[in-house]
């Protein structure tokens, strides 16, 4: 058992931020590992690098 619960921050506007190295199970049964101190997991489903955030949730503006 880890000494402390894993901290997950729900940003609301974008990804979930998960602390610590994580192993992520995907819908197809595969797994990916992220060794970062903090991992950003996509929640908007627009990322081109699932399951990770690639900032595709950002608002878009027309040229001025």
């Amino acid at each position: 058992m880890p000494a402390e619960p894993t901290r997950v921050l729900v940003t609301g506007e974008g990804p979930l931020l998960v602390s610590g190295p994580v192993e992520i199970e995907l819908p197809d049964g595969g797994t990916v590992v992220s060794e970062r101190a903090v991992t950003a997991l996509c929640t908007c489903r627009r990322t081109r690098r699932p399951p990770f955030c690639d900032t595709s949730h950002r608002r878009r503006s027309k040229p001025q």
Partner: peptide, 14 residues
Amino acid sequence: HVEADAVHEQLVRR
């Protein structure tokens, strides 16, 4: 940097 800076953006702001 696509992936790392998506995390760094959040960390730098928060």
